[in-house]
C-alpha cells in the first residue's frame, strides 16, 4: 500500500511519560481496508500509541498525521477518528440515546441508521443508563457510537478485556458484522491471541517503545495464535504497566 493512501502515518514518534521513554522512533502507516492488531506485553506502550493516534496525547518528537493533520491540534482530524477506550469513559448517567445526542454534533459523517443497526447487533438497550449495563453492554455502547461516526480511523483499545467468553464472542461477532473495513483503517489492541489471529490483516508487535511487524509472505496471509504467541514471548514487558 503506498504511503499517500495512508489514513494515519507516524514518523519517528517519541513520547516520554515521566522519565521513561514509552515510545521511541516509532514508525507506522495505516491504510484503508486494513484491520491491524496491536500486540505487546503489559507496559509496552500500546495505550500510549492509541492515545497519540487519537490525539489525546501529544508526541514530543516526530510527526503524527491522521487524514493529513495532527490530531492533537486539528479538530477535523479528530472528527475522522472513532475511539473505543479500554474502560468506558462516558458519564454513568448517560444512555446510548443521550450519548448519541452529544456525539452526533462532533462528527460530520455521523449516521443515525448505522447507530441503531449497530446497537441492535450489539444488543445494547437504547435508553438504559450506562451505570446499569453489564460490562459487555457498556463496551457495546462505546462501539456503537464509534461505528455511527463512520470514522476513517477506528481505534479500539482492549475492547474485549474483562469480558466473559459469551460477551466477548457477542461483541466480536457484532463488531465484525458491522465494521466498515473498506474505507476505514482499524487498529485493535488486545492481549487475546485467539482474537488477534481471527481478525488481523496485520499483526503489529510493540516492543521497547517501537513496533515490529510479523513478516507475512505470499503463501501465509493469515496468522495463527501459536505463531503470535511465539512472537510475543520474544519481547520484554515494559517498565511500568500502569503508566503505559
Amino acid at each position: 500500500m503506498s504511503e499517500t493512501n495512508d489514513i494515519a502515518r507516524l514518523r519517528g514518534v517519541g513520547v516520554k511519560l515521566g522519565r521513561s521513554e514509552v515510545l521511541r522512533g516509532l514508525e507506522l502507516g495505516l491504510a484503508p481496508g486494513e484491520l491491524c492488531v496491536l500486540l505487546g506485553r503489559n507496559g509496552a506502550g500500546k495505550t500510549t500509541l492509541m492515545r497519540v493516534l487519537a490525539g489525546t496525547l501529544r508526541a514530543e518528537s516526530g510527526s503524527v498525521r491522521v487524514c493529513g493533520a495532527d490530531p492533537s491540534r486539528s479538530a477535523a482530524a479528530r472528527a475522522a477518528i472513532g475511539f473505543v477506550p479500554s474502560l468506558p469513559d462516558l458519564p454513568p448517567w448517560m444512555s446510548l440515546t443521550t450519548a448519541a445526542r452529544f456525539a452526533r454534533r462532533c462528527y460530520p459523517t455521523w449516521d443515525d441508521r448505522r447507530l441503531w443497526r449497530a446497537a441492535d447487533a450489539l444488543a445494547v438497550p437504547r435508553r438504559g443508563r450506562i451505570s446499569k449495563l453489564s460490562r459487555g453492554q457498556a463496551a457495546g455502547v462505546q462501539l456503537a457510537l464509534a461505528l455511527a461516526a463512520r470514522p476513517r480511523l477506528l481505534l479500539l483499545d482492549e475492547p474485549f478485556a474483562g469480558l466473559d467468553a459469551v460477551a466477548r464472542d457477542g461483541l466480536l461477532s457484532a463488531f465484525l458484522t458491522e465494521v466498515d473495513l473498506e474505507d476505514t483503517a482499524t487498529l485493535v489492541s488486545t492481549h487475546d491471541l485467539d482474537i488477534a489471529a481471527r481478525i488481523a490483516d496485520r499483526a503489529l508487535l510493540m516492543d521497547g517503545g517501537a513496533l515490529r511487524e510479523q513478516a507475512v509472505g505470499d503463501a501465509q496471509l493469515e496468522h495463527s495464535a501459536a505463531a503470535l504467541r511465539a512472537l510475543l514471548t520474544q519481547t520484554t514487558p515494559g517498565p511500568d504497566g500502569a503508566a503505559a
Binding site: 481496508g33 484491520l35 464472542d169 466480536l172 461477532s173 457484532a174 465484525l176 458484522t177 458491522e178 465494521v179 473495513l181 481471527r198 481478525i199 488481523a200 490483516d201 496471509l221 493469515e222
Partner: peptide, 17 residues
C-alpha cells in the same frame, strides 16, 4: 461476507479470500 465474518469470527478480508 459480513454475515459469515460474524459467524466465523474472522474479518471480511478472510471471508472474501
Amino acid at each position: 461476507v459480513r454475515a459469515l465474518a460474524g459467524l466465523a469470527l474472522v474479518n471480511h478480508n478472510t471471508v472474501a479470500r
